[in-house]
Amino acid sequence: MVITSKKIESRNLIWILRCPTKYDAFELSKLRVKIDGETENLDREPGEGLLTPEDFEKLIYEDSIAEKTLFLVAEVEGKIVGFTRCEGSKLSRFRHKAEFGICISKEYWGYGIGKVLLENILMWADTVGIEKISLTVVQTNTKAIELYEKYGFVEEGLLIKDRIHKDGNYYNTVIMGRVLDK
Results as ranks from 00 to 15, higher is better:
residue 178 R to H: 03
residue 168 G to Q: 11
residue 7 K to R: 09
residue 67 E to K: 15
residue 41 N to D: 13
residue 144 A to R: 05
residue 105 S to P: 00
residue 127 T to C: 03
residue 54 E to L: 14
residue 169 N to A: 12
residue 102 I to T: 12
residue 52 T to I: 04
residue 31 L to W: 08
residue 111 Y to R: 08
residue 139 Q to W: 10
residue 39 T to L: 05
residue 157 G to V: 07
residue 9 E to M: 10
residue 67 E to I: 10
residue 17 L to S: 00
residue 10 S to Q: 10
residue 17 L to T: 00
residue 129 G to L: 06
residue 90 K to V: 14
residue 21 T to F: 06
residue 57 E to P: 01
residue 117 L to R: 01
residue 172 N to P: 07
residue 139 Q to V: 08
residue 26 F to H: 10
residue 116 V to M: 03
residue 146 E to Y: 12
residue 161 K to V: 00
residue 154 V to E: 15
residue 176 M to F: 07
residue 173 T to L: 09
residue 82 G to Q: 01
residue 148 Y to N: 02
residue 29 S to V: 06
residue 163 R to P: 00
residue 177 G to I: 03
residue 100 F to V: 11
residue 132 K to R: 14
residue 73 V to C: 12
residue 100 F to P: 06
residue 162 D to F: 07
residue 13 L to M: 11
residue 118 L to E: 01
residue 176 M to G: 03
residue 33 V to T: 13
residue 30 K to H: 11
residue 153 F to P: 02
residue 31 L to T: 01
residue 52 T to G: 04
residue 182 K to M: 02
residue 136 T to F: 03
residue 76 V to E: 05
residue 132 K to Q: 12
residue 67 E to Q: 09
residue 78 G to F: 06
residue 82 G to R: 03
residue 160 I to R: 15
residue 136 T to L: 05
residue 140 T to K: 13
residue 80 I to D: 01
residue 90 K to L: 09
residue 173 T to W: 04
residue 45 E to R: 12
residue 71 F to G: 00
residue 14 I to P: 00
residue 154 V to G: 05
residue 9 E to L: 10
residue 87 E to W: 03
residue 139 Q to T: 06
residue 156 E to T: 08
residue 124 W to D: 08
residue 43 D to Q: 09
residue 166 K to N: 10
residue 87 E to A: 07
residue 74 A to E: 00
residue 176 M to H: 05
residue 68 K to M: 04
residue 43 D to M: 15
residue 46 P to G: 13
residue 113 I to A: 00
residue 2 V to C: 08
residue 4 T to N: 15
residue 164 I to N: 01
residue 67 E to Y: 11
residue 172 N to V: 02
residue 17 L to A: 05
residue 42 L to Y: 13
residue 42 L to R: 07
residue 48 E to L: 07
residue 41 N to W: 10
residue 9 E to D: 12
residue 20 P to F: 01
residue 39 T to Q: 03
residue 143 K to N: 06
residue 143 K to E: 08
residue 101 G to E: 13
residue 137 V to D: 02
residue 138 V to I: 15
residue 84 T to F: 01
residue 144 A to N: 03
